[in-house]
Simulated scan of single mutants.
Amino acid sequence: MNTQIDAPRHVVASTAEADTLLRRLTREGWTARPGFALPDPSWDVAAAHLVLHGRIGDDDTDSVRLAVLAAARGAGVVVICDAESAAGRALLDDLARIGPVHHGADGADPVASLIPEQRALLDRLAAGDTIAAAAAAEFLSLRTANRRIAEARALFGVRTTREAVLAYLRQRQPD
């Protein structure tokens, strides 16, 4: 069983947003701890319900690496950073490979939270491709494409791929 799916992964712009998220997560049973280094030597820390938090600067690649490693090991992360910086983009891309990442405040635009692979797949599905054809065109395995689409459905809060494509088309910014 993969326990990391339930671990929260948030990237926010301000300390106030992080504080709000941390209060909510603490109420939900998570233990908040500053910094991204894990104290537990065991690999899977999901059972500890630990959420690590802190700020990552524009060129802080070490903190990005630690935050991604913590998320991969099952810890939750709440990161304050500029998502447009090189470190912020790297962080979002790497965290998205682990699972869904909540970017910005709760209720933010789900399209902004999509990674490029998800956008490309949804664009191809909207153009009439099957999931298998879209996966092949994007050089993804069918399994990875299905996972990315499932994550997009979760971001949009819908049950079917068709609903996710329609929500994506309604909410995306025109090119």
Rank of each mutant, 00 (worst) to 15 (best):
57 G>S: 08
56 I>L: 06
54 G>C: 07
60 D>G: 07
51 V>M: 13
42 S>E: 03
53 H>M: 04
58 D>S: 05
54 G>A: 06
51 V>C: 05
37 A>D: 03
65 R>W: 11
52 L>T: 01
50 L>Y: 15
53 H>P: 06
36 F>R: 00
61 T>K: 13
55 R>V: 09
47 A>M: 03
50 L>H: 12
39 P>S: 03
37 A>W: 04
38 L>W: 01
37 A>K: 04
34 P>V: 05
54 G>D: 12
38 L>D: 02
38 L>Y: 01
39 P>E: 11
54 G>Q: 06
39 P>T: 05
46 A>G: 12
65 R>V: 11
35 G>I: 01
60 D>I: 01
36 F>P: 03
37 A>G: 01
52 L>H: 15
44 D>M: 13
51 V>Q: 05
59 D>A: 05
54 G>S: 02
62 D>N: 14
35 G>K: 12
35 G>S: 00
40 D>R: 04
55 R>C: 03
54 G>P: 05
55 R>Y: 03
65 R>E: 11
50 L>S: 06
42 S>G: 05
55 R>K: 13
60 D>N: 07
64 V>G: 00
39 P>K: 09
58 D>Q: 09
46 A>K: 09
50 L>Q: 14
44 D>G: 08
61 T>Y: 15
63 S>E: 08
51 V>H: 12
43 W>K: 01
61 T>I: 14
42 S>D: 06
43 W>F: 12
48 A>M: 13
64 V>L: 03
40 D>C: 11
45 V>P: 08
49 H>N: 13
52 L>I: 09
52 L>R: 12
59 D>S: 05
34 P>W: 00
58 D>M: 01
47 A>Y: 07
65 R>P: 00
35 G>R: 04
44 D>K: 14
34 P>K: 05
37 A>Y: 00
49 H>T: 12
47 A>V: 12
59 D>V: 11
46 A>S: 15
44 D>Y: 12
47 A>L: 07
40 D>Y: 00
34 P>G: 10
54 G>I: 06
51 V>K: 03
50 L>R: 15
57 G>W: 06
38 L>P: 01
62 D>C: 14
50 L>I: 13
50 L>M: 14
55 R>M: 04
56 I>K: 03
35 G>V: 01
36 F>H: 10
45 V>K: 02
61 T>A: 11
37 A>F: 02
59 D>K: 09
42 S>T: 02
54 G>F: 02
46 A>P: 12
38 L>T: 11
50 L>F: 13
35 G>A: 05
51 V>F: 10
41 P>N: 15
49 H>K: 15
35 G>P: 00
49 H>G: 12
64 V>H: 08
35 G>Y: 03
55 R>A: 12
51 V>Y: 10
40 D>W: 04
52 L>D: 02
47 A>N: 06
35 G>E: 02
62 D>S: 14
46 A>C: 11
42 S>W: 06
